[in-house]
Amino acid sequence: MSPECRAKYRRLGLFALGGVLGFVVDFMALHGMLLAGAGYYRGRLASFLCAVLCTWMFNRRWTFRERKANKGLLNEALRYLVAMSAGGTLNLVCYATAIELWPLSRQWPIFAVAVGCIAGMTLNFVSSTLWVFRRKSGDGF
């Protein structure tokens, strides 16, 4: 396997690991918000934002460390938030669908969170690779 191919698999693996970390943060924040009475949807919005912050910090430090943006930290964070919003929208739609159609997910919201996170991961990886942390040469993955 070529070094370039290994680097691509490494990046995908690290992105997935960051996603697992984000999933844990997401669910823990949702659980806290539900206990605080925020409800399924307001709680999920807050937990999603916590997960985005967590995954941005992880991906910046580990997954795309050689591709950090040169336009400033705040600019990169905002680009990441915008990029994750598309995946986040898909994530939230899948979460809401699971909550509404799958009674078990109301009892165990972790299942609905998992459905949403898995659905949004591919879109998030592509947007991170091609836009937020893209190489200057624009060679993609």
Rank of each mutant, 00 (worst) to 15 (best):
P109G: 04
V93E: 08
G120H: 01
I118F: 11
V115P: 01
R42P: 01
G88M: 04
V132Y: 14
V25H: 02
K8M: 13
G19W: 02
R6A: 13
R67A: 07
C117H: 10
F15P: 00
V20P: 06
G116K: 05
Y41W: 12
W56R: 04
A51N: 01
L130K: 15
A96H: 05
A86Y: 15
F125K: 01
T89F: 15
G138L: 09
S2T: 13
E66L: 08
M57Q: 14
A38G: 10
R10V: 09
T89L: 15
G87Q: 05
A86C: 14
I118T: 13
I99K: 00
G72K: 08
F23S: 03
A7V: 08
V132W: 13
S137Q: 13
E76D: 08
R134L: 02
L14N: 10
A29C: 11
W102T: 11
P103K: 00
G120F: 00
I110K: 04
S128Y: 07
I99H: 00
F141H: 12
I118L: 14
D26N: 05
M33E: 03
P3E: 15
A38W: 15
G43S: 00
F141Y: 08
R135P: 00
L74C: 12
Q107E: 10
I99T: 01
R61P: 09
Y9D: 12
W62I: 13
V20N: 05
Y40E: 07
M84P: 06
L92M: 15
S105N: 08
W56F: 10
T63K: 04
K68Q: 15
G72Y: 03
T63E: 09
G116Q: 04
M33T: 07
L123N: 15
R65L: 05
T89M: 15
Y80Q: 10
V24L: 13
H31T: 06
L130G: 14
F64D: 11
G120Y: 01
W131Y: 15
G138W: 12
K136Q: 14
L21S: 08
L14G: 09
V82N: 03
E76V: 08
V52F: 00
V24T: 10
L14T: 11
V82T: 07
L73E: 13
L101T: 04
R79P: 02
A96N: 02
L53E: 09
C5W: 14
E4C: 07
N70Y: 11
L104S: 11
